[in-house]
């Protein structure tokens, strides 16, 4: 017995360690909708670093785009190119300001159409893993953001807040596999659930007899208790009406371009 234990001790202890980790994960799932003390701590610790580095990287990218990239010039035209470079940088910077202005105007127009109080926030970081779709925003509990609040942009639904620390929050995007939004087709009011699939969404539980066409707009139904009714999710991308089965397979392309997500609005539900 002792020999067996001595021989297999690493294997047994490894299994025990792994099972303990699995058990802890399983127990933690019950409190998945809340931000744990540990997660709060990590978010508090990484948030300021991410904000600082975000600005630093933005500044470095700005210098690279506007100055260094233009350094390769002919000597004879040095002065002329210097002037040209400076003007170019000014132009690009003012273009950037104009584009930001346009985006914020869109958000402002959208904000005015909302009955629910909204809070603008800036996206400061992406998910650290390729398997999940979350982003970190620079607003948290101190600004009234709590778990479960919907996050939108002028184009449509972005996701919902899943973790919140005093100054930062994490948002689960609608394209994440663990995201589900109660939805309906704007045209024929067919109901279903939009689930994330990475790049696209799948519109589940749409009955076979429902008339669904490519390009139909999908909006939130307001049934899930998270998102208010009528927010745009996206447009139908493909429809596969199989010969058998109760439901058809419908994929939806999100109205939001998640690769260029910079500013968002948090809908402060429960606050007018």
């Amino acid at each position: 017995m002792w020999d067996w234990w001595r021989k297999n001790r690493p294997l047994v202890l490894g299994c025990v360690l792994l099972l303990t980790a699995l058990l802890w994960y399983s127990v933690s799932l019950k409190r998945q909708d809340e931000t744990s003390f540990f997660e709060n701590l990590v978010l508090r610790a990484t948030g300021p670093v991410q904000v600082g580095l975000n600005r630093l990287i933005g500044g470095a990218a700005d210098i690279w785009d506007h100055y260094l990239y233009l350094v390769d010039t002919v000597d004879d035209n040095q002065l002329l190119l210097e002037e040209n470079r400076r003007l170019n940088a000014e132009l690009v910077r003012s273009d950037e300001v104009r584009l930001e202005n346009q985006r914020l105007h869109l958000l402002l127009d959208f904000k005015e159409t909302q009955e629910i109080a909204t809070l603008p926030a800036r996206v400061i970081a992406e998910d650290a893993s390729s398997w999940f779709r979350t982003v970190t925003i620079d607003k948290g509990g101190e600004h009234g953001v709590t778990e479960g609040m919907p996050v939108v942009v002028a184009e449509g639904v972005v996701g919902r807040v899943v973790r919140s620390s005093p100054r930062f929050s994490r948002v689960l995007l609608v394209t994440d596999a663990s995201s589900a939004v109660a939805s309906l087709l704007q045209g024929n009011r067919a109901r279903g659930v939009c689930r994330g699939q990475g790049e696209l969404l799948v519109f589940d539980f749409v009955l076979r007899q429902e008339d669904v066409n490519v390009g139909d707009r999908v909006v939130t139904s307001g049934m899930g208790g998270v998102f208010p009714k009528g927010l745009v999710i996206g447009e139908v991308n493909t429809v596969d009406r199989q010969e058998f089965g109760l439901f058809q397979v419908v994929s939806v392309r999100s109205a939001v371009d998640f690769s260029h997500l910079e500013e968002v609005l948090v809908l402060l539900r429960g606050r007018q």
């Binding site: 690493p10 294997l11 490894g14 360690l17 792994l18 980790a21 699995l22 802890w24 994960y25 399983s26 127990v27 933690s28 799932l29 409190r31 998945q32 744990s36 540990f38 997660e39 701590l41 990590v42 978010l43 990484t46 970081a125 998910d127 650290a128 893993s129 398997w131 999940f132 979350t134 970190t136 899943v162 973790r163 994490r170 689960l172 994440d176 663990s178």
Partner: peptide, 27 residues
């Protein structure tokens, strides 16, 4: 566990799979 604070929404998941990976390599 720290990684879970910046990736995904499942507390304990990264701890589990990274530990599993580490033990597999040790094995």
């Amino acid at each position: 566990c720290c990684f879970d604070g910046v990736a995904g929404t499942f507390p304990g998941l990264s701890g589990f799979f990274l530990l599993g990976l580490f033990l597999a390599v040790r094995g």
